[in-house]
Nucleic acid binder design. Structure first.
Lengths: 210, 210
DNA sequence: TAAAAAATACGTGCCAGTACGTAGGCCCGG
DNA sequence: CCGGGCCTACGTACTGGCACGTATTTTTTA
């Protein structure tokens, strides 16, 4: 397997934790996305990539996508400190086969790797809970309708976050101020927020700000 | 020294990285603040505590304060993924003797520990940069005045973030709506924001929301 | 204890944001 | 071809936030 993390301490820790597991061999380790791809080319025998999500430069999710695109048979196991909806969903979309929190013990980590290597999936308990919540949300929304933020709405949201007034936003996007107001109202309705204050937090929680 | 981190992988990694450094002995390791304090009582020979800032339950900063209060001779070396102004400043106020990023190499880590153990301080390059920026800000503000957010202002900010109106905030804090407006105005001035929208982002960037 | 900072409070006035209603043009999929 | 989602757009009305000025009391700090 290939180990990708920009923290030497974590890399060393995982290496050490896996030493007793003689069937799991750490073939190589990388400190960034680009290096990981190079190593993947040089080591065709790699079957599992254990990668940290938060890395400078190419993010873990981007790397996951790149791996999926170029090495379809390689299984990606995500490693992260967080388990928020947006991130977990991104990893799944990127084709991740599993998601382990950094609080995982040696036992959990090795189990996860074996599961993933065997073609199955693995998710830490908290991550699984997040997934279930997502499913419930998705399910409960089958009846009324999924409040998905559209492209245009996201644009407006980003400009709101930069403290622009409706008029400024209108001029920036070459549309009428009335239109901006409408988008704004729709955003408030969809997010169930009372004002722009809540909107900003929604945007941040869902990673909608570039 | 005592090692405090809720991530087994990191603990194991640091242990392993320090093994070759025969003069640095890891006496014990804890997964949370409470456990760390117990271990500190049981191991009076501990001179340095290397602690992660992000832990469930008692935060790293709280633990640092507790250590400073009860074991004045023990030196605290903070370990963190981030180096934002607010966090670094908090650690310093809490009496931290150093601040190392998790991206640190084995060499940097051992240097940091030796420095701190010897009564000196150590800060990773990026952290030092942050500190310098802070100093420059502080220095440049000696003329006009340092815009520090007060306790009361922080309370109001948190309620604003929860989408409460001025009137609601006033009722919640048993003060006049006018007073809330004044605090709000002062916050806008201090943060150089145009509206509550910017305020929220300021609050999030500076970790002012519980 | 005196000076400085923080918290409290009021008034006046403007405008941006919000609520609510309505509607036409566009494009996609059934 | 038509329904539905999206983007576009207008009008009316209300109100909460914000600007600007001023001032007293309490707490902290020097």
């Amino acid at each position: 397997m290939l180990l990708v993390d920009d923290h030497p301490m974590v890399v060393e820790g995982i290496r050490q934790m896996l030493l007793p597991e003689t069937d799991l061999r750490v073939v190589a380790q990388a400190n960034g996305g680009e290096q990981a791809l190079e190593l993947l080319s040089a080591h065709p025998e790699v079957r599992v990539v254990l990668l940290d999500l938060s890395m400078p430069g190419m993010s873990g999710v981007e790397l996951a996508r790149a791996i999926r695109a170029g090495w379809a048979e390689v299984r990606v196991l995500a490693l992260s400190m967080f388990h928020d909806h947006a991130t977990v969903a991104e990893v799944l979309e990127a084709g991740g086969a599993g998601y382990v929190l950094k609080t995982a013990s040696r036992a959990e980590l090795s189990t996860a790797i074996r599961q993933v290597a065997a073609g199955r999936t693995y998710f830490s308990q908290d991550v699984a809970d997040t997934l279930l919540q997502n499913l419930q949300i998705t399910a409960s929304l089958e009846t009324p309708g999924p409040p998905a933020i559209t492209r245009r709405e996201r644009e407006i949201l980003q400009l709101i976050a930069r403290e622009h007034s409706n008029l400024e936003i209108a001029e920036a996007l070459f549309i009428s101020e009335r239109t901006v107001e409408t988008h704004r109202r729709n955003l408030l309705t969809k997010t169930k927020c009372k004002s722009a204050v809540g909107l900003i937090q929604y945007a941040i929680r869902h990673n909608l700000l570039a």
